[in-house]
Design a protein around this nucleic acid. Structure first.
Lengths: 229, 229
DNA sequence: GTATGATTGAAACATACGTTTGACTGACTT
DNA sequence: AAGTCAGTCAAACGTATGTTTCAATCATAC
C-alpha cells in the first residue's frame, strides 16, 4: 500500500494534465479518478505544482540519459572526424520514440505535457526541466557541427531546432485521425530520420561570415502595408 | 469610443493568454490591464471562450488566405507537371513568417496560443480552427505529391507534417535566449526553406507498397524490458 | 498487546473565478 | 427638450479551486 497511492496519482494526473491542461485539471478530478483522498496529493507531493514536477521527472530523465549514452557510443565508434549525420540523428530520435511508444495508448501525453510547460508551469518548474533539454540539445548540436565542418555552425544549430520541432509535432499530432495514414512506430521513425538527415546535411547557401541579402520585407514594412504578400 | 474597448480587450487578452495560458489568465487580469470594466468582456464577446475565438479569428484567417493565394499563383505559373518543391515550401512559409514577424515584439504569441488550443479550448472552438489548418495542409500536401511523383504519397504527407512542426517550433522558441544566435527574420526564413526543401525532396528508401522491415522494438517489448536501448 | 509513526479520511478554509445584474452615462434621434 | 439605446460601471452571485486541519486507521516494532 505504501507507494501505491503515489503511483496511482502520478498515472492519473499524467493523463488528465495532458488531456485537459494543467490549470484546467483540478486535484479533485485526479483524486476522484484515482480513487484516493483529496489530501493525498498534498501529502505525497506537497503541492499541485510539485506533482507536475514529479510526473515530468519520471519520464524525461531516463529518455535524455539514453540519448546521451547513445551519442557517446556513436562518437566513440566514429573516428576523430566525427560521427555520420544519420547516426547522430538516430541517437537523438530513437530514445524519444522508445519512450513515447512505450507509453502505449497514452503516447501523446508526455509531449502534450511538455508543450504546456512554457505557459502553465511556474518559472521554477519550467527552468528545472528545460535545463535538461538544453544540455542534450547542445551536446547534439556540437556533434552535428563536428560532422558538418563546411556548414555555418549557427546554421547547424538552427537545423537542430528544426529536427526537434519536426519530432515533437509528429509525435504529438501524427496519430490524429485524418492527418496521416496509420504507420508502425518504426516506419515513422525511419521516415523522420531520412527527413531530418537530409535537411541537416543540405548544402547551405550562406556560409559563416557572409550574410544573406534581405529578400523579405521587414516587420515594420509589413505592418505598414498590412502584411499583403 | 465604439470599438476601442473591444480592440483593447483583444490586444491585451492575446498577449496574456499567450504568456500565461488561457485557463490561467483571468478576465480580471485582462480588464485591469486593458483599463476597461470587468463586464465589458461578456458584453462584447459573450464569454471568455468566445473571446479566445475572436482572437484567433483575427490572426489565422488572413494568414491562411495568403497561403492559398500564393500556392494558387505558384501552381498557375508552373506547368502541368507541378510546381518546384522550393516554391511550394516558400508559399507555405512566407505568410506565416510575415504574420508572426508583423506582430513585432509579440511574435510568439499567436503560436503559443495555437499550441494551447488542443488542451485548453473547448471542443467546439478547437474544431472550428483546426478545420482551417487542415484545409491548408491538405492543399499543400497535394501540391507536393504532384511535384514529387516518385515518392510514396504517404511519405510526402508525413514530410508535410515535419515541415509544419519545424516551422512552429522555430517560431515559438527560436528567439529564446541561449537557443540560437540572433537572426534577421528573412535569414531564418531562408534557412528553414532550405532545410524543409531538402527534407521534402530527400530520396525515400521505402516507396509505396513496399513496407519497411521492423528494426525497432515494439511498444510492448520496450515496456517489458524497461526501455533500455 | 501496545505504542509508534506513516498514511488516509471527511470536512472546512480562504480565495479566485466567470458570469449576471441593475443603475448610470452620454451621444444621437425625433 | 425628451427619448432611446449602446456602452460602461460597481457590486454581487454561485461555484470551484488548492490547501490545511485533525481525527481515524493501518502496519510494524517492541
Amino acid at each position: 500500500m505504501a507507494g501505491e497511492t503515489r503511483e496511482r496519482i502520478l498515472d492519473v494526473a499524467e493523463r488528465l494534465f495532458a488531456d485537459s491542461g494543467f490549470a484546467s485539471t483540478s486535484l479533485r478530478d485526479i483524486t476522484a479518478e484515482a480513487g484516493v483522498n483529496l489530501a493525498a496529493v498534498n501529502y505525497h507531493f506537497g503541492s499541485k505544482e510539485a506533482l507536475l514536477g514529479a510526473i515530468l521527472e519520471r519520464r524525461i530523465r531516463p529518455m535524455n540519459d539514453r540519448r546521451i549514452a547513445l551519442l557517446d557510443k556513436v562518437e566513440a565508434e566514429a573516428g576523430a572526424d566525427g560521427a555520420a549525420v544519420e547516426q547522430i540523428v538516430t541517437a537523438f530520435l530513437n530514445p524519444a520514440f522508445q519512450q513515447v511508444m512505450a507509453m502505449g495508448t497514452h503516447r501523446r501525453q508526455l509531449l502534450k505535457l511538455l508543450g504546456q510547460l512554457h505557459t502553465q508551469a511556474n518559472p521554477e518548474t519550467r527552468k528545472l526541466f528545460f535545463r535538461q533539454f538544453d544540455e542534450v540539445r547542445i551536446r547534439f548540436t556540437t556533434s552535428f557541427q563536428r560532422a558538418l565542418p563546411d556548414i555555418d555552425p549557427d546554421e547547424v544549430a538552427r537545423r537542430m531546432m528544426y529536427i526537434v520541432g519536426a519530432m515533437s509535432y509528429i509525435m504529438m499530432w501524427g496519430e490524429q485521425s485524418g492527418h496521416l495514414p496509420a504507420q508502425t512506430p518504426d516506419r515513422l521513425r525511419q521516415s523522420l530520420v531520412e527527413f531530418a538527415s537530409a535537411g541537416m546535411a543540405a548544402p547551405a547557401t550562406a556560409p559563416a561570415g557572409i550574410p544573406a541579402p534581405e529578400t523579405l520585407p521587414t516587420a515594420a514594412s509589413i505592418a505598414a502595408h498590412g502584411g499583403h504578400a
